[in-house]
Design a protein around this nucleic acid. Structure first.
Lengths: 232, 232
DNA sequence: CGCACCCTTGATGGTATTCAATTCATGTGG
DNA sequence: CCACATGAATTGAATACCATCAAGGGTGCG
């Protein structure tokens, strides 16, 4: 039932393309779903049965080899879109990293609705193009950067991404202290290195006075220029 | 001028979404452009001024670090779409790998036209979603696979991609002998390894009787199951 | 024929992985 | 409240893999 009126991402998600009447219809085909950290939503290779908008929380998209090596190929935040419309199967798994709430649609329902609402498809297209650009830039990091550069790039990337999420954002637009929403293992899975390598690079950055690590999840950037230099 | 009537990719490119009258209009805003192997079309970071359809030839999309390391983040074939509509800047360079012909549009013209033709945007959206899936799968290869697995995966991928291009395709849908459209250096840039590593893996595959390499550009798969096993 | 370019092959070294042990944080029950 | 268990993170040592550096081969083209 229509809870779109109170939806916190109503104006940031692709739904923003719709007017009051249209959103009313969309709300009849979608439903809220709550996930606990670690819960899977979609499995790699499965039939593409559902798509969703993220309302709250963080989820990972992963690809795996048969022998169990895993790579995080994307991370989605509130207002981001999940799933594979207009396609038979999902190319990757989707799993909640934190407790999360999503707004799910049966793919067939969504496909039909989208076909009738070009403005919605337009927003989805822009989002997908952005995501493709971001993904391609990340390929350079995965394929060519050293572990040091990877970790430095990752930390700078996080300090940007978490600005919205953090209400105490300073006006100059940089966030020097924040809590990582990822474990060391997950950071490794994002960067394509082992947990030990992540750990060693982090402690080195701390030892060199570029970072402070008050707790395992907290990062404080002390020397941003140096970090940017290391990012390559 | 309207050369769409004779365009060889008319029914495969996104233009297939348009009827006769519409294609007439589109043809007035697009123009053919011929590229020689090595010619750049778009530079990474530049303002996004043009988009294009590939008519003939193969082009690479690349990202580079400041110190000159290059990664091929995508390869486009005839009927594929190039460029960044609805966006300010291009995230990657586009360069012809072979002699090529493309159909270019000023981005602003294309954006306007696309906005008025939802069917075109729909096709573009599907293409972009496909490309995003492919790109994400490639991330697993770049980040986690060994050089051996990378080369094996690459060769299998090529044997699939080149089926269309090759008219003598056998009915069973596998292509066991083909010419690589890439130099060893370019293969390295695609796989995120050095040219020497590519060379060593190729000769090893030959020595083990899995491949034959009659010329530098020609590959003949002798033992596909073994190659698939190596691909991981 | 000779030059240029691409590719191959060899020797060496560096970086990240792997395996292993220890420390640290968190939560549970006595 | 503290001992203890559990899982995460760190640290260390040894190894493997790939990059780098360097030289030589082959192919095609003027």
């Amino acid at each position: 039932m229509g809870s779109c009126d109170t939806c916190v991402v109503r104006n940031r998600a692709i739904c923003a393309a719709l007017d009051g009447d249209e959103i009313e219809v969309l709300s009849t085909i979608g439903r809220r779903k709550t996930l606990s950290a670690g819960d899977p939503l979609i499995w790699e290779g499965d039939d593409s049965l559902l798509v969703a908008n993220v309302i709250e929380g963080i989820l990972k998209l992963t690809n795996s080899t048969e022998d169990g090596r895993e790579q995080i190929v994307g991370v989605v935040y509130p207002s981001d879109f999940i799933g594979r419309p207009f396609g038979a199967t999902s190319g990757h798994s989707v799993t909640a990293l934190t407790d999360a709430r999503v707004c799910v649609f049966a793919r067939s329902d969504f496909d039909r609705f989208a076909g009738e609402h070009p403005a919605l498809e337009h927003k989805l297209l822009k989002r997908t193009l952005d995501e493709l650009d971001r993904t391609r830039s990340w390929m350079l990091l995965l394929a060519r950067k050293s572990a040091e550069e990877k970790v430095a790039t990752f930390l700078l990337d996080m300090s940007e991404r978490l600005i919205d999420a953090n209400c105490e954002t300073p006006s100059d637009g940089t966030l020097e202290e924040f809590d990582l929403p990822f474990s060391r293992q997950q950071i490794g899975d994002i960067l394509g290195v082992t947990i030990e390598t992540v750990s060693r690079q982090m402690t080195r950055l701390k030892r060199e006075g570029i970072l402070d690590l008050p707790t395992r999840r907290t990062v404080k950037i002390l020397d941003r220029p140096a970090l940017e230099y290391m990012a390559g």
